[in-house]
């Protein structure tokens, strides 16, 4: 029996969340005394995984899998997992992994828990802690399958380096027949996505209009951060709804979340609650966000943000 991790890559490079998933898998393998087998699909250098402790790496390189289709990836991962005698399959919580995890669960007849925030509370029976009620609470879920799947929340376990000397095996996959074809991919180049970002800068109605968003963008580019916005901002069309974070928008689990001119409605706070450190800048000291934040500045964003950008640039140049 083995712990299997799928290490997600993009354009041939492993995602940060892939290393986190492998680190998590290593911890599970140690606790349950099993081998850790990691699956890599079209990553340029599968040996990179050796920094995070796998016993074995299965490397698939197949040009028919250059486009991500959940069905084909799930077929491949379930086939390889079965061959390796999977007991627990670990995935990240990226959009792509969450897309295919229910397909995998049915194919493997497995129990499934997404948004898992820590290593299991117990291995036998398998009990995990996962976030629910859009980050307003956690639940303890018992997984009852003979095979189970865990999707680890981004930035929850962290990356733990552990060198190993895995056997790296090139594997061929059976011919696949996708039901869905990818027609095109429209990806903003150069900017950081909310899901992958360590730092997220978010703007609310307090910024008064889309013409003032350069403040958010300048601060974000200074910090290498992703930009986000509150629900009213996306509803008014100031920003695309792909930037809307909150209960009905995207969840955020960054290390640092800076909210500017966001009052902090309960639905917004729910969506960003998993972020580790929260900073609020708002001229209304009564804004509910101050109750949820770690650090706050009561001031007009138009005064304080340009100063903050200037000071951060100076700080960065001294590092």
């Amino acid at each position: 029996m083995a712990i299997i991790v799928y290490a997600e890559s993009q354009n041939g490079k492993f995602k940060k969340s892939a290393f986190e998933a492998v680190s998590y898998g290593r911890a599970l393998a140690n606790e349950s005394n099993k081998n850790l087998v990691v699956i890599s699909i079209n990553a340029d250098d599968p040996n990179e995984l050796a920094n995070y402790g796998p016993d074995k790496v299965l490397s698939v390189k197949d040009s028919s899998m250059n486009d991500y289709t959940a069905q084909v990836y799930a077929d491949t991962i379930s086939e390889l997992s079965k061959k390796e005698g999977v007991s627990i399959l670990v995935l990240s919580s990226s959009a792509d992994s969450k897309y295919m995890s229910p397909l995998l669960a049915v194919q493997l007849g497995a129990g499934l828990a997404s948004n898992v925030v820590s290593t299991p509370i117990s291995i036998s029976p398998l009990v995990v802690k996962r976030s629910c009620f859009t980050n307003k609470a956690f639940n303890h879920t018992t997984l009852k399958g003979s095979i189970n799947i865990i999707c680890v929340s981004n930035n929850s376990y962290g990356i733990h380096e552990k060198e190993s000397r895995p056997e790296v095996v090139d594997v061929k996959i059976s011919k696949n027949n996708p039901k869905i074809k990818v027609e095109s991919l429209d990806k903003a180049t150069g900017s950081v996505s909310i899901a992958d970002a360590d730092i997220v800068i978010s703007g609310g109605r307090g910024l008064k209009g889309p013409e003032n968003w350069h403040l958010i963008e300048d601060l974000a580019s200074t910090l290498g951060a992703a930009t986000a916005c509150s629900k009213p901002v996306s509803d008014m069309g100031w920003r695309p709804h792909s930037e809307h974070v909150g209960q009905t928008g995207k969840p955020v689990a960054s290390n640092l979340y800076i909210a500017i001119g966001v009052s902090g409605a309960i639905q917004h706070l729910a969506g960003i609650n998993a972020s580790k450190v929260k900073v609020v800048i708002n001229n209304d000291p009564e804004a509910p966000f101050f109750k949820a934040a770690d650090y706050g500045i009561v001031a007009d964003a138009f005064d304080v943000v340009p100063k903050l950008i200037e000071k951060l640039k100076a700080f960065k140049s001294h590092q």
């Binding site: 802690k129 956690f138 879920t141 018992t142 399958g145 609650n273």
Partner: peptide
């Protein structure tokens, strides 16, 4: 294939540090 045994709420937050 799974069951929820119990819930917990996130720990109460300390108060904000104003700068």
């Amino acid at each position: 294939k799974s069951s929820v045994d119990k819930f917990e709420k996130p720990p109460a937050k300390g108060s904000v540090k104003l700068v």
